[in-house]
């Protein structure tokens, strides 16, 4: 057990190291000059040489890549993730405020898409080739091939612009002081982005669950359960759900990466101030400390998701747990 733990920790540290190195290398390869990007084209042209040099030093764009990485990494070992130059605040603080928004959004989408996808897939498999199955399959195929940002735009147009049921963007009402923002306001603003993310996520889990349900229904143990007097749906309920849930759970935890990727696009479309939006801002503004911080946090989340899948698999699948009677 301790061996597994050490392995896992070692893997995690290697992942963090790899992700941070890649982030720094990519930022240094990017053609964006952080000074130009952040002060604007016109201001940059009118700026004195001395001012430019001062700004370049502030952004650290003059330093070689390895020196910058070394400085950042040294601070990180002391628990300091650096300062976001773009937001003029410590990276940890920026991530903390935005992660709250993002995690609420992604958590909702993750749970909704998981539950709805599982139910939809199981019912479609149970009623294979019925009208319900055909509609469910059609829905999944269409959604699996729809780009997230496009769907976000459509949903925005229909529900926010034409129908006016939901706000067009942001996580709180405009012009309201943060002290007055209630939970209802926050939820009201989260509905459309969460809807977009869930609707896209359902397709994957539903199609896989449907396939597994069809397999399970043809299995010997369902045939035997039916031969003992259970109806098809009762047999599936008592003997199928756990067997179907195994791959669905793995898939759902592995899909955290996809939800994260989707949230970047969705947050952009809905101007939703979350991690995804901050990542885009940091990337375009050459804010390497913030970008590296977000990359580390998201990689850690995805890592944790996959690890959860592993652990839960061991708990649910008695065949993998060894002799635990």
């Amino acid at each position: 057990m301790s061996k597994v733990l050490i392995h896992t920790i070692a893997k995690f540290l290697l992942l963090m190291l790899g992700v941070s190195v890649v982030t720094f290398v990519l930022v240094s390869l990017s053609p964006i000059d952080p000074v130009q990007a952040n002060v604007g084209q016109a201001a940059y042209l009118n700026m004195s040489e001395a001012k430019r040099a001062q700004l370049a030093e502030y952004w650290g764009s003059g330093l070689p890549l390895w020196e910058r990485y070394g400085n950042w990494f040294g601070d990180l070992l002391h628990g300091d993730m650096g300062v976001s130059l773009r937001y003029n605040a410590p990276v940890a603080e920026v991530i903390a405020t935005r992660a709250l928004n993002s995690l609420a959004l992604m958590g909702c989408a993750w749970v909704i898409s998981g539950v709805l996808g599982f139910v939809l897939g199981t019912l479609a498999g149970l009623w294979q080739n019925s009208l319900f199955d055909k509609l469910a399959k059609g829905y999944c195929f269409v959604l699996a091939s729809v780009p997230t940002f496009w769907l976000g735009l459509i949903i925005l147009m229909v529900f926010a612009v034409y129908l006016g049921w939901f706000p067009v963007g942001f996580s709180v009402p405009l012009g309201m002081s943060s002290a007055d923002v209630g939970l209802a306001d926050a939820l009201h603003h989260m509905v459309l982005p969460a809807l977009t993310l869930s609707v896209v996520g359902i397709a994957n889990i539903a199609l896989h669950t449907r396939e597994k349900t069809v397999d399970v229904l043809e299995s010997d143990y369902i045939r035997f359960a039916r031969a003992r007097g259970l109806s098809r749906s009762k047999a599936l309920l008592h003997h199928g759900i756990r067997n179907i849930a195994l791959p669905a759970l793995t898939l759902q935890f592995a899909s955290i990466a996809e939800i994260f990727g989707g949230s970047v696009l969705v947050e952009e479309v809905f101007s939703y101030p979350g991690l995804g939006q901050a990542a885009v801002t940091a990337g375009l503004g050459g804010d390497v400390a913030l970008l590296a911080g977000i990359a580390l946090v998201s990689a850690a989340l995805v890592f944790a998701g996959n690890m959860c899948a592993n652990v839960m698999y061991g708990i649910i699948d008695v065949r993998m747990g060894g002799d635990r009677r």
Partner: peptide, 15 residues
């Protein structure tokens, strides 16, 4: 009428 099936594959592996 009761069935006696071929083998262990006819039992739910997770129960």
């Amino acid at each position: 009428i009761s069935l006696v099936p071929q083998g262990v594959a006819s039992l739910d592996p997770l129960m």
